[in-house]
Design a protein around this nucleic acid. Structure first.
Lengths: 71, 71
DNA sequence: TAAAAAATAGGCAAATTTGCCTATTTTATT
DNA sequence: AATAAAATAGGCAAATTTGCCTATTTTTTA
């Protein structure tokens, strides 16, 4: 959950999206993006899918839960 | 959401899991598995991740939301 | 370094998900 | 066809997520 958030933040920045832009594109609240990135909440499969589509990143990259341990 | 459920059902069967076995392995209720497969609810990212690990299928396959349109 | 932009924080009510439960229906096995 | 196994249905309370909101802090830009 925390890893998901870290992946999201990294990928979002790589793609040049602000939280606001991403939130707007997928039609959710910016406060939700913030909470997801910070690992405060465990969002749904459909939001995860929408994020992956909006950022044009493979879903696998968001779910790469082990990546963080490396860095 | 519906597609996620269909993918789950197909993959679960391919791997020879009953709903009960899968539920037990990931520590959730069998009624939840049933509801997820039927597209009644939109489960969380962490449950999706646990399912992918338990079934040993890539997360991408669960999220292959467009697959259904083919069949 | 001042102003603007981006991100964080958190309160609150409504909506949704979850676990626990019992009962019924469908599918597979003998 | 009868029994057993698997899946569906749904009620209910507790827990969690969501949207909407305002305020504050941090980061970036001029």
């Amino acid at each position: 959950m925390e890893a998901f958030g870290n992946n999201l933040r990294r990928l979002r920045k790589e793609k040049g999206f602000t939280q606001e832009k991403l939130a707007f594109e997928i039609g959710i609240e910016i406060s939700q993006i913030s909470r997801i990135e910070r690992g405060i909440l465990n969002t749904s499969v459909s939001t995860a899918n929408a994020i992956s589509k909006a950022l044009k990143v493979p879903i696998r990259e968001l779910f790469d839960f082990d990546r963080d341990r490396l860095s």
